[in-house]
């Protein structure tokens, strides 16, 4: 017997009940998938920008990023990374190109030091943006 796929069956069944409340369900589910794909794309972009900022050499940055997350009491999950890097991700997303993003980050790092937005990670005095970039380099390994 060729059966309906379970999800389609449920939708048909509910549609016969005449409820209009379920109409939005289809587009919402699609949006979630799309959103998820978009989030993954953004994460990749952020990680790539962070990697590019460090000249493509991310071993040191990943070590610092892990230490910074530990210091904040966070794990290396995507949610934690997102939570720890809000200011920097905004700066990345505002830039119109990868190069402009990196230029903006270089300026942000200096500005952090000038405006007392530094953090101390295992004793090293770093710019907050710099520490957040280190965290972003952890993204590919966690998603």
């Amino acid at each position: 017997m060729k059966g309906y796929p379970r999800r389609e069956f449920l939708l048909r069944a509910l549609a016969t009940c005449g409820t209009s409340l379920l109409v939005p369900i289809v587009p919402v589910g699609g949006a979630r998938n799309q959103q998820s794909r978009t989030d993954a794309g953004r994460a990749t972009q952020r990680a790539q920008t962070a990697a590019d900022y460090f000249g493509g050499r991310t071993q040191a940055a990943r070590a610092v990023g892990s230490a910074y997350l530990r210091q904040l009491g966070l794990d290396t999950s995507a949610a934690s990374i997102q939570q720890a890097t809000r200011a920097t991700t905004t700066a990345i997303e505002r830039a119109s190109s990868q190069q402009k993003a990196i230029d903006a980050l270089v300026a942000a790092v200096r500005r952090d030091f000038q405006e007392e937005r530094s953090v101390q990670v295992e004793g090293w005095i770093l710019s907050r943006t710099e520490a957040e970039l280190c965290v972003l380099t952890l993204l590919p390994a966690t998603n």
């Binding site: 050499r57 040191a60 070590a63 230490a67 295992e122």
Partner: peptide, 19 residues
């Protein structure tokens, strides 16, 4: 004069940004 977890070599790499 450096952290156990992040040695100076790591900080150097961070500072130099690959160049």
């Amino acid at each position: 004069a450096q952290s156990d977890a992040i040695p100076s070599s790591t900080a150097q790499e961070l500072l130099m940004r690959g160049g």
